[in-house]
């Protein structure tokens, strides 16, 4: 069923919540559409009795990073206290516009966070999987790799070959056998 913004989708209740493309008006506890598209009612992912009504628009809207989402980013600059990265994907979706992220020294790993050497964790050009901590400052989102499954997922060695992870701190070049230090993500 096609709906336009402002159309009533249902009554908000403990059994019905508003999902994407919908909102709840707090004055009358009614769910309205906020974009045009098709109305879908799906089961809530965390509660089987609960339903979520959402509106799916005609085009995949460009993904925007939000706190809690997992992003794929390319490291652009490594500084002693932080690394900058361009966010390329939010979850499975690619971003249309350029969003920058910052991985601060204390957010690289979960342990011994004061002994982190940024240059032994990332190199420009590395592809990292990271968690969005917050919206950050005016320029960049704050990213974190302080989890086993977060960190460098793909990196090139000095020789130019894609390296193979050998431990959670090391990667090896298949051409030269040289070992380089990285904060490596655990393969999922």
């Amino acid at each position: 069923m096609m709906v336009a913004p402002g159309e009533v989708l249902g009554k908000a209740s403990p059994l019905l919540a508003a999902g994407r493309g919908a909102y709840v008006n707090p004055h009358n506890q009614t769910i309205y559409a906020s974009i045009t598209g098709r109305r879908h009612v799906i089961h809530s992912p965390d509660n089987n009795n609960k339903r979520v009504v959402q509106v799916v628009g005609h085009k995949a809207r460009g993904a925007v990073p939000e706190p809690g989402s997992i992003v794929i980013a390319r490291v652009t600059k490594v500084m002693p206290r932080m690394a900058s990265a361009d966010i390329m994907c939010v979850g499975p979706k690619s971003v249309r516009e350029k969003f920058t992220g910052t991985i601060r020294q204390q957010d690289v790993r979960a342990t011994e966070i004061d002994k982190v050497d940024m240059h032994l964790s990332f190199r420009p050009g590395d592809i990292v999987r990271a968690l969005v901590l917050s919206l950050g400052d005016a320029r960049a989102y704050f990213l974190s790799t302080a989890k086993n499954e977060l960190g460098v997922v793909s990196a090139e060695s000095i020789a130019g070959a894609t390296m193979v992870p050998i431990s959670w701190t090391e990667m090896q070049c298949p051409l030269t056998g040289q070992i380089e230090k990285r904060k490596v993500a655990k393969a999922s």
Binding site: A4, P5, G6, G21, Y23, N25, Y32, S34, I35, R61
Partner: peptide
């Protein structure tokens, strides 16, 4: 705005 997919409370 609706075409651009920006959330609006109403038209």
């Amino acid at each position: 705005l609706v075409e651009a997919g920006i959330d609006c409370v109403d038209l």
